[in-house]
Every structure is written in C-alpha cells, then in structure tokens.
Design a protein around this nucleic acid. Sequence first.
DNA 1: CGTCAGGTCTCTA
DNA 2: TAGAGACCTGAC
Length: 290
Amino acid sequence: MKITEKENKIVIDDVKDFEITHIFDCGQCFRWNREEDGSYTGVVGKNVINVKQEGSRVIFDNVSMKDYEMYVKNYFDMDTDYGLIKTMINTDEIMDKAICFGSGIRILNQDEWETMISFMISANNRIPMIKKVIENLSKMFGEYIQEYRGRDYYAFPSAEKLAGAGVDKIMECRAGFRSPRIKEAAARFLKEKDTVYSLKGKSYQEGLDYLKSYCGIGDKVANCILLFSMKQFDTFPVDVWVRRVMQTLYVDKDTSDKDIRSFAESKFGKLSGYAQQYLFYYARELNIGK
DNA sequence: CGTCAGGTCTCTA
DNA sequence: TAGAGACCTGAC
C-alpha cells in the first residue's frame, strides 16, 4: 500500500481485499450512497467522505492525511489482514464460492451509538426504508456538516437530541412502532454510555446480555451491533438472508435461527462474523433460497 | 386489497 | 421453551 495526499484527497495504491460495492452492500451500514460515477459518499461521525475505486487504487475524497490517520483508516479497517481471515474461514466449497464472490468485503468499525439505533430501526424493515428513516432522523436531529456535490449532509443525531425528542417527531421520520423504543434507548444510553463503550473489551456473552436488555434489541439486532461496532467477531447474526443461505446449503430447512447460529459459531469460531458477511452478501446478491 | 420486509415483544400452553 | 399474532410503513 502506497499512500499519497493531494488536494483534500488521499490516494492509496495496491490495496488488497477492498471492493467498495462489497463493503457498502454487505448489509453492515446504511449511510452510504452510490454516486453517478460509481463512487460512494457517506457520513462518518461529523465528516462527509467520498470513496472511489479504480482497480487496486482507492481514492478517499474530502479527506486529509490527518483525517485518514485519525479515523478513516480505522473505520475502513485498513490494518486488518483479510487475506489471512479468508484463508482461515475457507473451510469448504460453499465458503470458497462465497468468499470469492464478496472478496472485497471489510467489516467497518462503526460507532456504537449509531449502530445501536440503526439496527433497532432495521427490525422488520427493508433496507431502503431503513436508510430513509436514518436520513430523516439525521436531517431533523443531527448536526449540519456541509454540502458535498450539491447535497446537504447531517451527522447522525446525538443521544441527547433523541432522548429529548418528541415521539411524534421521531414518528414523522417514519420510524413507526420503533419510535418510542428509540427515545427510550437514547435516554438509557445517556446514563450508561460508559458501559456501552466498554463492551468492546468485554466478552461476547456479556455484550449480548447487556444489549438485549434494551427494549427493541433482540437476538439478531444485538448480534449485529456486537459485530459491526464492538469488534465481537465470534458472533453469527442470523437474519432472513443468512437463514435462507444456511438452510439451503448447510442445514435442514426447519432449523431454528438459534441452532443455525450455534452451528456456525462452532464451525467458524472466532471468525464467525466474517463468515456471516460473506454468506450474507452471497445469498442476497444471488437470491439464494428465495 | 393482501402480503411482506435484514425482528421483537407479548401472551399462551 | 416454543409457537402465534401484532406491529409502522410503503412497495408490489
């Protein structure tokens, strides 16, 4: 990897295991949108970033070297060796295909608070709708960041803002029946944020139990939060796509989510979360099991 | 119109 | 512990 800085851009050459379409479409994030030129623009914290890829060259626009070192590198998990991970979970022909198909997937390091609320919104919802709700909430309650390529961007709302928001206003963002839970979670998060931010360093089980004690966070959502923002990779979130691909390719059709999860966690161990991402992307893009 | 979506909660047996 | 229904919303 060779990194150069120019005109508010960071250009990195010879990047391995990195494919923006795989990264942004593997179900882990909701704030990135494709531009006409094939690049993606998204919000990370209080920053707007545009990512473009030309082969093994990755260009981060609206990013200085300082920004890159401070948060972009970590957000895109640039120091993790995905080649090694892929080798370790490539245990059979199914995984080989899935890994090949989503070869450029990376698990982003997202903020705990944003991930908690985002995945609460994902419950019984569709991706375009989830993205819309988050955008609405950010517009209504988030801090204005800047205009980029003719569009206004807002940060994800703070817990203070959402805790103080009227449920009717959250409803206006089309969060539906999740609205009161969002407000409630925000109020609780405010009091317990130190606990939440400490979960990264605690055990998977401890994190799972804590998160599930929130109203609106069940098994699937808790596992997503653990995987996408708390570096707990020994988890295997089972959603409808993962259920389909597992029931089609690995286990009986009537296997419960819980059994699918334990099957996968014993098969992939500490790397279950990575395996889940390749399988999810594979299943969803190819419509496996539907 | 009904069905259903990257689930969770509540109630019942 | 397991199964059945309800649930905001909007797209088909």
